[in-house]
Design a binder for these strands. Structure first.
Lengths: 159, 159
DNA sequence: GGATAACTACTCGGATAACACATGTCCGAGTTAGCACGG
DNA sequence: CCGTGCTAACTCGGACATGTGTTATCCGAGTAGTTATCC
């Protein structure tokens, strides 16, 4: 899995602490973790295409969450960056084997494919069960200084 | 995930139908699905290093399962090919952020990392719950001709 | 006829290229804030 | 003083290089079976 997922998750969490209506440019989000700004921008574009963040051009512009953290699951973010394909892709090897039926879709019929899909669904379900709001709440509970640290850091970068 | 996983799973299943003590060379396993033999050999080597299959050199040589199908889980095969690392790797971005403690291992402390690990564990658990023997039983039940098809194909290739 | 030794064919195993995707970088289009100017 | 038009800086967005890991291939080391030879 590409590291862009980690960047996107941390950035979304930081965005969730902003007052509504305020946007943060890529450069500041990147400076937060000393990341290459141009590449982080690429990931944020992907989040934008997925409808997770919205972008504003020009001065005072930047990115902000496009909807409430309660309605953003970890799966949404992962899919936005990694794409919708499941990790295991079935190339329908059985079509090359003996007794193969050309009309059968072995991505459905192959029991190996089914077993792998079961695992993939378990993974997706676990990710979909957690929203960004849940994560935010947990972080605030365990590390109470996080929110103010984040906002202070953004304020300092604003200078 | 690399396609070698799919090849390995199908090959292990085919190997599970062989009478005990009999080995099949890479070339025949590859011909089964029209795969490149040299590359499939690479995957089988990985299975060998993981102790899932054992190899025999020379004429009448080849590969065979190293232990009973009941003791080979799908997770074993996936890990043998893909390696033990989990899909999401935490680069400890928080170490670069404000209020970071250099002595903390954020792979453990970071709640994002924990959430992703939870999903990864759900995936691994699902894979570990299914053994090659389970898969073999299911296939034999749903496609009764599979076993004989496989053995016949091997016999034909033997010529 | 039997045992032995060399030979041959076959198989794995790791070292070696070719390719694809993730990673990283750059500059242009569009937008907004600030400013200067005129009324 | 206030309204208006201009300028300039800032931001995103997509097009363009680079690096690393997967995909694919090849040839050498080792082994077992076979055969020919000798006792």
């Amino acid at each position: 899995m590409s590291e862009g997922v980690e960047w996107a998750l941390h950035s979304c969490l930081n965005l969730s602490w902003l007052p509504p209506g305020q946007a943060i440019p890529t450069a500041k989000l990147a400076a937060f973790y000393s990341l290459p700004a141009a590449y982080l921008n690429k990931q944020l574009q992907a989040l934008g295409r997925a409808g997770i963040v919205s972008s504003i051009s020009g001065p005072r512009g930047g990115f902000q969450l496009a909807r409430n953290p309660e309605h953003i699951t970890l799966l949404d973010v992962v899919v936005a960056i990694e794409g919708p394909d499941e990790a295991f892709r079935c190339d329908q090897l059985l079509k090359q084997g003996p007794g193969a039926d050309p009309d059968v879709d072995y991505r459905q019929a192959c029991l190996i494919s089914q077993a792998m899909r079961r695992a993939d669904l378990a993974w997706r379900r676990t990710l979909a069960e957690q929203t960004l709001a849940d994560l935010k709440t947990d972080v605030e509970r365990q590390y109470p200084a996080s929110e103010s640290n984040t906002l202070n850091r953004f304020a300092a970068l604003r200078a």
